[in-house]
């Protein structure tokens, strides 16, 4: 690798030296920043601005100058419901189904996942033999690609799959897991807990290990029961980490797409269609491509994510200061 990179770096050095002579050392910082800022500007900040124009225009043309201005009509389409609780009463019922699915999914997934991650972290924090091994066992699914995760479980859950064979064997009988709407939803929650739990376990374990040992020794001296020690020492001292984990999990949960799309395709029906899939399908998968609706929905998701991220940054800052 260095054989290719070294000459390249030498070539870059020539214009950089000229710039250094021209600008002076301190202003050269901007040159170092330039590529990164250019990429951020072009692929992060500019899109945010353009997203507003898309959300205020209609038609299926991707070129902004060819899109008629429609004002807030995209948002009206998305939000006109007789009752927000019942997607059937909405014009854009698929959007609301996706919203409600996402809300349910995020609640269940984050709750279950953080719960199990905490339990796993607490167990791993005990004097466990081969802790490194167990830790990596729980962690490795994090590295698998979403499509691979989806296919692994699809293969296990198919009608004549190994899970049904096992259930047959113990006499319960098999199910069409991914054809039944409620089971499919439950399995998407399971799948995403399975795939991401290790990541949060790792963070929580680090948080647990940061709790000083002598606090526990003092509790032991005072003959505090293990349950009391957990409630009065572990949980309060772990709560900053817990908060970080919760917010991170929420941010990622709202954006769930890949593994579910490959796993159920959003089905059966719209049972497992989440909000990002709705955006993808409106904007890119179907014809006509309703970029306006997709952008308007993106904007609504972005608002939620910005709020969550601000909370995350605020917690981080507080943790650092405190």
């Amino acid at each position: 690798m260095l054989v290719i990179l070294n000459p390249l770096m030498r070539i870059i050095e020539i214009p950089m030296m000229a710039l250094q002579r021209l600008l002076g050392v301190n202003r050269l910082a901007w040159v170092f920043l330039l590529p990164n800022l250019l990429l951020f500007g072009l692929f992060a900040f500019l899109p945010v601005i353009l997203n507003f124009s898309y959300s205020l225009t209609g038609g299926d043309n991707v070129l902004l100058e060819a899109r008629p201005y429609v004002g807030g009509r995209n948002f009206e389409t998305l939000t006109s419901c007789s009752s927000f609780l019942d997607p059937n009463t909405c014009i854009e019922d698929k959007f609301w189904r996706a919203v409600w699915n996402t809300l349910w999914f995020v609640t269940l997934q984050v709750g279950i996942m953080v719960g199990f991650a905490l339990l796993t972290a607490i167990i791993l924090n005990r004097d466990i033999r081969a802790r490194g091994f167990f830790r990596s066992v729980f962690f490795f699914p994090v590295l698998l690609s979403p499509v691979v995760v989806a296919l692994i479980w699809k293969w296990i859950l198919q009608r004549e799959g190994v899970l049904n064979a096992f259930l047959d064997w113990i006499g319960i009988g098999g199910f069409n897991w991914l054809i039944d709407a409620e089971w499919a939803f439950a399995w998407t929650v399971f799948l995403s807990v399975w795939a991401h739990m290790g990541f949060y376990t790792l963070i929580l374990l680090a948080g647990l290990q940061a709790i000083p040992r002598d606090v526990y020794e003092a509790a032991l001296m005072d003959r505090a029961s293990p349950w009391r020690t957990f409630r009065r020492i572990t949980l309060p001292l772990l709560s900053p980490t817990m908060l970080v984990v919760l917010v991170l999990a929420l941010i990622k949960g709202v954006q769930t797409f890949d593994e579910v799309y490959a796993f159920t395709g959003g089905g059966p029906g719209t049972a497992t269609t989440f909000i990002i899939q709705y955006i993808y399908e409106e904007g890119f998968a179907g014809a006509p491509r309703l970029f306006g609706l997709a952008a308007a929905a993106s904007l609504l998701v972005a608002i939620v994510l910005v709020m969550l991220t601000l909370i995350q940054l605020w917690i981080n800052r507080r943790n650092v200061d405190g």
Partner: peptide, 15 residues
């Protein structure tokens, strides 16, 4: 940090 790709798909596609 607040702008994940998932929420700017349409304009990113244009660019």
């Amino acid at each position: 940090l607040m702008i994940p790709q998932t929420v700017v798909l349409v304009p990113l596609f244009l660019i």
